[in-house]
Nucleic acid binder design. Structure first.
Length: 136
RNA sequence: UCUAUCAGCCGGCUAUCGUUCCAACCCCGGUUGGAAAGGAAAGUCCGGACAGCAAAGGGCGACACACCGGUUAAGCGCCGGCUUCCCGCGAAGGCGGGAAAGAGAAAGUGCCACAGAAAAUAACUACCUCCUCAGUAAUGUGGGGGAAAAGGUGAAAAUGUGAGGUAAAAGCUCACGGUCCCGGAUAGUAAUAUCGGGGAUGGGUAAACCUUGUGUGCUGUAAUGCCACGUAUAUCAACGUUCGAGGGCGGCUCGUCCGAUCCCCGCAGUAUUGUGGGGAACGUUGAAGGGUAGGCAGCAAGAUUGUAACAGUAAUGUUGCAGCUAGAUAAAUGAUGGCCGUUCUCACAGUAAUGUGAGGAUAACAGAAUCCGGCUUAUGGCUGAUAGAAUUU
């Protein structure tokens, strides 16, 4: 059969530069999948897909809780992002995504995993739609 | 068994998928190996290291500190001692524990709730005395003065007791005390204690202003140094132009800004040239502005960690031996399982200790961001030591 799918999440796949993040926030479009808010921008100079996660320190005062949520989000993203990558490759597009947690309570891992499935599906739909626009 | 204090530790092994850094290897983005949060990493409250800027000297102001000695790189920390106050024990000398907002109230100003006549230039009642009036008188009315000894109030009422003294009294005088000041002896490094001498007799409050003494330049690792990149006769003002092409500003960079020099014009001269003016270029200062926010160093071997011995009442120090122990930057150290251990609940067996099975939990407070020494705050469980209390034998 085919090779086993690898689930990397390296430095190159993360949205790290302050400039890039500011660009995503100022020019990107967004949608919500409670308790998450997704901001995306169909452009990226450095890689095909870069993603970042964030938690407001207004809702979570302690750094321990913020770290926990960000770790859960990264884990859920890491295990499910390969489909989005394939679809991007097919559409020949680059994408920057930033996911914010807007809830006020500590989430369970199962919930985060589920919600990320729907988030990634919507992103795939969006890329397919833009692809069709380009084609037509 | 419970409470308090101190010290130590926070599960172990393993599977799958991953993260950051380091090293090695090669097919150059993969493989293998190693390392990867805390006692508070927190608050940013003190003190330093390190770095940059500033800097003649003095005064005013502001802020901090305030018994003594030791300790330390340093400190408002820590250790030991002194004084005062509080609590307990004791017949007492004293002992044990705790706290201190521990310089000055005799430089000045202010304030002192309620109660009380009055809270600081004390006369309400009661006391003494003088005058007036009434009355034979005792005495009483009104007014003046003396007087802090008595009363009650209060956290606090003008230094306590006794004697003299007086119309009544009063440190008014005397004796013994208390408190404060000055100078002395003894003990102690000193704070201070004890003893004796002289003088004074002023209520409290400085966590009221204040006074005295001592100390303090400012900013912080986004410090700071270096590299790369960006744009190109492309801002304005002032002053200026030689031995060499850089300097300065900003977190960084560009640009503004300027020089050597170059160009143009006038005048003198045949000419090299001299001189004057203008422009460009550039230097310094100031004002205003655009872009970028990437990389490296700082940045991980140190007032280092563990341990032993020695010195010291202790804080702490010295020496020996062993070890290397996170370095991210939208910020790594994780997610999901399994077994063992610990613990809780239920069921069964057993007099009981306990055993078996099923189910649950696996910890609280909390996440490095330049690094150390402290302080403060948040904190569940287990183990050990010490002290106290209760119960059983």
């Amino acid at each position: 059969m085919e090779d086993k799918q690898r689930y990397f999440l390296r430095k190159e796949n993360k949205l790290k530069s302050r400039k890039q993040i500011d660009a995503v926030f100022s020019r990107g479009k967004s949608f919500s999948v409670f308790p998450f808010k997704v901001i995306w921008l169909p452009a990226n100079e450095k890689a095909a897909l870069q993603a970042g996660v964030g938690v407001s320190s207004r809702n979570f005062k302690r750094a321990v809780d913020r770290n926990r949520i960000k770790r859960l989000m990264r884990e859920a993203y890491r295990l499910q992002k390969h489909e989005l990558e394939q679809s991007l490759q097919a559409a020949q597009q680059n994408l920057s995504v930033f996911v914010l947690y807007t809830g006020r309570e500590l989430p369970e891992y199962e919930l985060v995993f589920e919600k990320f499935t729907t988030i990634l599906n919507r992103l795939i739909k969006i890329t397919d739609a833009t692809k069709n626009q380009v084609d037509s």
